[in-house]
């Protein structure tokens, strides 16, 4: 998948949750990514973060530290 697309989609999700009550934001993003993103998409997100997380919303970066790392192979 194109890296910009992963960044774009992740940031769209962050934008929505940023408008939600403070206490729900982080959990909202984490749950959303776990519920709807296939492991290879999450893996790509981690790769982007590991490479510095350029252009990713801070909420996504924070959420990633709470996100389970998917297994390497599927």
């Amino acid at each position: 998948m194109l890296p910009d697309k992963i960044v774009y989609m992740a940031n769209q999700i962050a934008t929505f949750f940023e408008s939600q009550p403070e206490q729900d934001r982080l959990e909202g993003v984490v749950t959303h990514l776990e519920d709807f993103w296939d492991p290879r998409m999450r893996r790509q997100l981690f790769e982007l973060i590991d490479a510095g997380g350029k252009d990713l919303s801070p909420l996504i970066i924070e959420a990633a530290s709470h996100l389970k790392r998917p297994r390497q192979t599927a």
Binding site: M1, K5, D35, F36, D38, R40, M41, A74
Partner: peptide, 12 residues
């Protein structure tokens, strides 16, 4: 684990 959605399938 959730799978791919149509647009994600095409991207993948």
């Amino acid at each position: 684990e959730p799978g791919l959605r149509i647009p994600n399938m095409l991207d993948a």
